[in-house]
């Protein structure tokens, strides 16, 4: 959709990595610091959208072979799945659990089922946002 744009492309190459790293940080830290599934997902989506804008759809599609509609659906299913898991354990739907574990490198670490739920949220957000942008920009 764009002509060759050297500056944008070379900046994007660097920036996308930074944005992706940052969004992963936001996502993982969401439990204790600002961030979480929505923000992490959205900024990941923003990074992907940036890729599309600077390199064009076809080129990116060659490299990221993924159906974002399915990604969104998988996200929703993960979220529902975590909810159902608590039903299986005899708790009301969507009861989250957390506990602390001693992991080899990280030391005492908190693992929460909320993180899985949040992953579902993030995937749904990425899938939907990219899907919307892609659909519109493909429409020629």
């Amino acid at each position: 959709m764009k002509q060759n744009d050297v500056i944008l492309q070379s900046v994007t190459r660097v920036a996308v990595v930074i944005i992706l790293t940052f969004s992963f940080y936001l996502f993982m830290n969401g439990h204790h610091h600002p961030g979480g599934g929505f923000i992490g997902g959205l900024s990941t989506a923003a990074a992907i959208v940036l890729l599309y804008l600077s390199f064009g759809i076809d080129k990116v599609r060659e490299n990221i072979r993924m159906d974002f509609k399915k990604l969104a659906a998988i996200g929703v299913l993960i979220a529902i799945g975590t909810g159902m898991t608590s039903v299986i354990f005899g708790k009301p739907f969507l009861t989250q659990a957390f506990d602390y574990f001693n992991l080899p490198i990280f030391g005492k670490t908190e693992l929460a089922s909320a993180l899985i739920f949040d992953t579902g949220v993030a995937l749904a957000v990425i899938g939907t946002a990219v899907n919307i942008i892609l659909s519109i920009s493909e429409d020629r």
């Binding site: 204790h32 969507l94 929460a112 909320a114 739920f117």
Partner: peptide, 23 residues
Amino acid sequence: AGAKNIVNAILVDFRGFDTMLEI
């Protein structure tokens, strides 16, 4: 909920049902 970020705890834990429907 084992979370220090209250907003996030509300989203994923206390009001998880809302979030699920929202996505």
